[in-house]
Design a protein around this nucleic acid. Structure first.
Lengths: 129, 129
DNA sequence: GTTGAACTTAACGTTAACGTAAATGGTATA
DNA sequence: TATACCATTTACGTTAACGTTAAGTTCAAC
């Protein structure tokens, strides 16, 4: 396909090096096909990579991301499989919730530091040398 | 001081190995004093370590944490120093805000996946084999 | 058809944050 | 004081996620 992308274009698109993309293939995150030995990335491949990079941004490890992606790939043929899939999803959700709470705590804490510093600053500016 | 803690106690307290604590001293995150060559951790040391572990929980790197801790240590003697300190603090805050936004996006996204799966599940359960 | 950029695989190097092992010394208790 | 346990430093090992050659192949342009 002429609309498929070469590795350099993919790297450019996601603002990473080609090495990163090759590595992602190495560990099975994408499976671009070859044309005369050169990798070509279809629209589907690009979508997968988007998911990978989004996952990374959220601080998940590649191995985790691999699992999550497989969930999406899965056309879960049975109800049982589907329920396992959902259970995993729910666990992830809880994890995200925990992270959110912790980050909010950190924010509060840093805010109070900043305020203390601010007060210090005002005090000192008011004082003569 | 008799109320100071030995390394094993500190490790126990924070649920890590003694190696971790020694490492943190190695890279300058704490400076316990010695008694007959053995490390002893004062209350201040413990407080510092608390900050370190909290930082870790929030996903910061030790090097970052080192910087942040130094901000707290600093009794910023001049207004200039104080302003630099605050500027750093504000940058950190913005970073945290960004992380919060991203995490919330992820949450939304995962929620919609989960819902899709849920619908699938209901549909299949309604159908006969 | 030759050059030069972009591609390939293979393999070794790097950083963070510890794990683990060896050799040695201090401490508590019977 | 002998035993057992805890501590010390030194130093090499480990994992993740790439970086960095090296040596060769293919494409695009002239």
């Amino acid at each position: 396909m002429v609309e498929d992308l070469a590795i350099a274009e993919v790297a450019e698109k996601f603002q990473v090096t080609t090495r990163t993309i090759r590595y992602y293939e190495e560990i099975g995150l994408v499976h671009p096909h070859r044309e005369n030995g050169h990798r070509r990335f279809s629209r589907k491949d690009i979508t997968r990579l988007s998911l990978v990079f989004r996952g990374k941004k959220y601080g998940f490890q590649l191995e985790e991301i691999k699992n999550m992606i497989q969930l999406i790939d899965l056309d879960p043929s049975g109800v049982q499989q589907l329920e396992k899939t959902m259970e995993y999803g729910r666990r992830k959700m809880r994890e995200i919730d925990r992270r959110l709470v912790e980050l909010e705590q950190l924010k509060t804490e840093m805010n109070s530091w900043l305020q203390k510093f601010e007060e210090e600053l005002v005090k000192r500016k008011g004082e003569p040398l």
